[in-house]
Design a protein around this nucleic acid. Sequence first.
DNA 1: GAGTTTGAAACT
DNA 2: CAGTTTCAAACTC
Length: 784
Amino acid sequence: MDTPERKQIATTSVSKFEDSPVFNYINNLSPIQPVKSIHTTQTFNSLSFASLPSVFTSPHVSSYKESRFLRRHSVADLSKPDFASENGNKVDTNGGVTGSVSQLQGNSSAPDGNSDSTELPSVHSLSTKEEPQAMKSDSARPDCDQKLPDSVTESGEDPALIEPYVHNKSGNGSAEAEANKQVVSLTEEREATGYDWESLITEGSDLLIFSSPNGSEAIRLVQKPLDLVTGFTSSTLSQIMENDNTNLSKMRIADPIESSGGQQEIEFLSSQAGEAHELKDMDRAIDSLSFPNSSNSMSREITDDEVARYITDDCKPVSNLYRGMRRRCLDFEAAVSRRKNLEDGSTSGSVSTHPEEKMPSVDKQLVPYKSGGVATRCILTGIGLHLNALATASKDAKTLNQEKFSSERQLNLPNSSASCHSPSTGLDPRLTSVVTERDMDPSENGVHNEEDAVRASAYVLAEDFNQNSPKKKRRRLEHAGETESSCKRCNCKKSKCLKLYCECFAAGVYCIEPCSCQDCFNKPIHEDTVLATRKQIESRNPLAFAPKVIRNSDSLPEPGDESNKTPASARHKRGCNCKKSSCLKKYCECYQGGVGCSISCRCEGCKNAFGRKDGSSLLGLETEQEEEEPETNQASAMDDKALHGPEIPNNEEQNPGSAIPSTPLQHCRQLVPLPFSSRSKPLRSSFLNVGSSSGFYTGNKLEKPNILQSQPDPGKNTLPGMEDEMPDILCGNCSPGAGVKTGSPNSKRISPPQSDFGLSPLPRTGRKLILQSIPSFPSLTPQH
DNA sequence: GAGTTTGAAACT
DNA sequence: CAGTTTCAAACTC
């Protein structure tokens, strides 16, 4: 036990230095490279967490996504069952982590879990194993820290935090043993009383802490959960908090650490106040709840949290809005995941789901957070992760880039095959997409100024291409606004945000403060209602929550689908029915989604810059041509649009796609500029997609980029990878019409989109994401 | 910011 | 499945 911890610690301390070239050099020289390996492992874990949930939740996962994660999770699930029985949700979360860990380190441990007696030991082993990972996570953090000035304090303190934690564990073995005993007793009592949910709450609190940008906020969040769970502890915490701001700051710092022994750390810090005892008890109790046997369990959880933090905190957790965004997205899926887990009975749960699961209970009680920033906990959920990541990313573009890399890497790792996002349920993609959007957001940190400026410029350029100056202005403004909301905002008055009219609901996210909706039921509080309504809608239309824009091409080159050939790689799921807008305004979903119209469209006078439906129909062409003529200017404009259009769409998609999280971010940003304010919708879809199906496409993502870049040929676009899920969806869409487009001048049009993709290969991932997302939703309904 | 337009979603 | 109504976003002024 000790050794691993120490190693971790060493790694953590080292992490600070890791960035330095000297460190790297030393690492190279020294045979001990394990540190980095650890890194990867952590990322893995983190990834596993994030990605797993979505994967597990969605039945579709089965498909392939064989990505390591899925398999691992499955394995973990097997091993975990026992835990789940006891702790329920909590167990799931832990289990997910443990499972992932066990798998990583050795599935052999998991088997042990089979016997009850062995369960605890197995857990122990897992926890211990995890600790190292947690440590790793810490080490990983350094990267982020470097980037983020604010985080610097954290990074600087990290070691300190770790140390205390270490001391607690290794140094004060006796004390820990006692604490463990107490915890065990507490846990037992709680279990007896059925307070398992408390553990969830506590976890949620942890999450909250992590997510919270400000220590004070974090504290608040923590307090709420605590109160819910254990009233006594909350008071102590609050007091402590009040007593010393420093303590708070420490708390924050500790947060990341908490992963390893957050609670202990808290105690450690709080001890100054003299109230540490109570806090310790609380923490211990919590720990015990989650993992009675091992305090280490916390570390595991923390790791996940840390991962989330990576994404979020690194970015600087500044705005509550972001939190809210995270929350809502997370909550939404989380609820589903939770339910799924509950249905499943359990266990398996992907890590990401865990948090969410926890959250739900918390949300119900805590719901009020919304304004405050509740939501930190949501972070883990696939969507949430993305959102969070984005939010953080937006704050510090630079930091984001690096962080993203780390985070994305993690995500990618899980997926393994697909470097791109697929892994964690599309988290990466989302992140990228989110990032792109968020980048746009001015509200966030000023740090981004440079990047923002660049973005803005790029953005402007894109807009110029796409639209007229006036529109451009609007879009710019919109973009700025959108960026803020990254997630959708609605203004529903009569639908109660429980119908597809509501963009938030349609996107699978909860409404948040920025929304100006009335009588909104699309909130965590009304989770049941939301889910029920969603089921109903899905029952009517299984694809109701699927991304509207699907990248067809690849997917199944069904015979007869000329669509594959269509210039526009993507298509609208159902096609539009525009009559007056000529598919040149955002009224048109195709246009809004940055995709060309297809045969499936019933639009009149289609002039969709991204690709006219006429392609398919000569008649359409004629009519269109006629129409175009009048526009003459427009025609040229169209061409421009076509060129631009593709870009724009790309941008939109790209955003999600930016998925390429790691490096791409930069690219993404550039891409981001893409005007497409519209992306907001596409993004949603992407988000959803990502979250849900992320698993599907790991491979696809890779391919997409290639396609995008390489590709001038639409046919190529349809590559193998893409095919997976979307094909089905696409199939419906796939209409020979696509071919028409290709035939038309579209070729140019087509190419542009591709080029766009080329700009940011990542974006493509977005498409994949979209596809994936579809599965996720379906999964929900089916399960139910 | 208010009002209009538009087309998807929902309903019949 | 088609027609109508409802709804909220997109757009215009």
